[in-house]
Design a protein around this nucleic acid. Structure first.
Lengths: 238, 238
DNA sequence: CTCGCATCGAGAGCACTGCTCTCGTTTCGA
DNA sequence: TCGAAACGAGAGCAGTGCTCTCGATGCGAG
């Protein structure tokens, strides 16, 4: 969270409840503004909508970037939730292909439904950079889902054997470290392919959300599905 | 260009020359500011750097968005140039794999050298969307290079035969229209793979430029090269 | 060669922004 | 219960995009 403005009032008090509600309302209204007109978030406009004077907001967020950071964290969590739920909803846990497709489509659906929130987390870093420490943990949640799928795919031997292309040693070690981080002890070539596919997925979503498909591809769900399936084959998921 | 502010003075005149120089200076300074601190471009700051009062800029650009649009067009052209030059620099025109790699690396190099300009054109649409008509033609230049490579690859029979995955008809037609647009009369499955690879490349660049590789992959040129090579194989370029 | 018009930069001004500081009021907890 | 902490209102500062007016300057048609 982001309320280093004042020392937080002790947990049980009425003030603590009101404060939490206030923070929630601020974030909700701010999210509405962002969804309406992009990252040009105006604190004063949020304050107006909330029926409060602008300086009051500074009791809850040290500055505009702090508010944005809070929204970014929430967005990551929301996206992570969506991915995890989509994965969990596949009954046959060993059907790793279905799980990959479910997660892939969940990522896209979440994104096209909230283009500006997507832009907030996967678009260009907005104001003065500085992705704060607090954002890195939530940002890993979606990729952890991929890790689970990979791990289960390996366990179920539903991962085709790699046709290895040589990888420079130093890079290979970094890739293996990524595999370890997301809890999938697969070989470097397979992990590399998974990372490539993951990158492709977000490239596809970015292209769609940022308007790169306009006047080109109208059957977007079909196109995305085709990409996701092709990349699943590419990884070797069966 | 973007100077609907006033009727442009007749071509030969001194005023026309001065005006063109002024526009250039404004864009140069604006570009410098963007490269220094992102898309939060301040017209007044540009005016100050130029030793001129802010209202004077409005003789040359109708508003801030117009200036940004001009910068976006220039960025597209610059990136297109880089891609075309990289392609042209490969002596053996039939070595389509080398050409693909050259273009891929040129795209990345251009982008990591100018992260904020890259964000301008491939990041989230900044203020109120509205990519103006003038931007669409320059934005196609990089992908036209891909088209040329594909066309030559087909002509030289250096494109592996596809292992076709069925594509929904409507989508297939759209993909074929893309192929036609970029001047590569290849089959839909091959074109689809090319588009997937292209999407992957920009996903990879975005991940790197927007900081998604921080604390994860440090050998970035190696990693990108591996991705580009893998995608070349994926397309079937040999 | 000249004279009216288009273009130019300066400057003031408007509405807006993020953010700070002060000042009474309310609420908490020791 | 009473001092300290937290709160919202309000004024104010520096900055922004953009508009309008006003003299000065260069242009091209006569």
């Amino acid at each position: 969270m982001a309320d280093k403005t004042t020392t937080p009032p002790a947990a049980g008090s009425i003030r603590a409840r009101v404060r939490a509600e206030m923070i929630d309302q601020i974030k909700t209204i701010a999210r509405r503004h962002i969804e309406a007109e992009g990252a040009n978030l105006s604190l004063r406009a949020v304050a107006r909508d909330l029926g409060v004077v602008s300086s009051a907001l500074y009791r809850y967020f040290a500055n505009r970037d702090d508010l944005l950071t809070a929204l970014i964290i929430d967005a990551y969590d929301s996206l992570g939730d969506a991915a995890e739920r989509a994965d969990a909803a596949v009954p046959d846990r060993s059907d790793v292909l279905a799980r990959w497709l479910a997660v892939a489509h969940a990522l896209r659906t979440w994104s096209v439904d909230r283009p500006h929130e997507y832009a907030l987390i996967y678009g260009s870093p907005v104001p003065g950079y500085a992705a704060p420490r607090d954002t890195v943990e939530p940002s890993t949640r979606p990729v952890m889902v991929l890790g689970a799928i990979l791990a289960d795919a390996k366990a179920a031997r539903r991962l085709s054997n790699e046709n290895a292309t040589p990888i420079p040693t130093a890079l290979r070690l970094e890739i293996l470290r990524v595999a370890e981080t997301i809890g999938a002890k697969v070989t470097a070539p397979i992990m590399a392919r998974a990372m490539i596919a993951w990158t492709q997925l977000f490239g596809a979503i970015s292209f769609e959300v940022f308007g790169r498909l306009n006047n080109t591809i109208d059957h977007r769900t079909d196109w995305y599905d085709y990409q996701a399936r092709t990349m699943a084959t590419f990884i070797g998921l069966t």
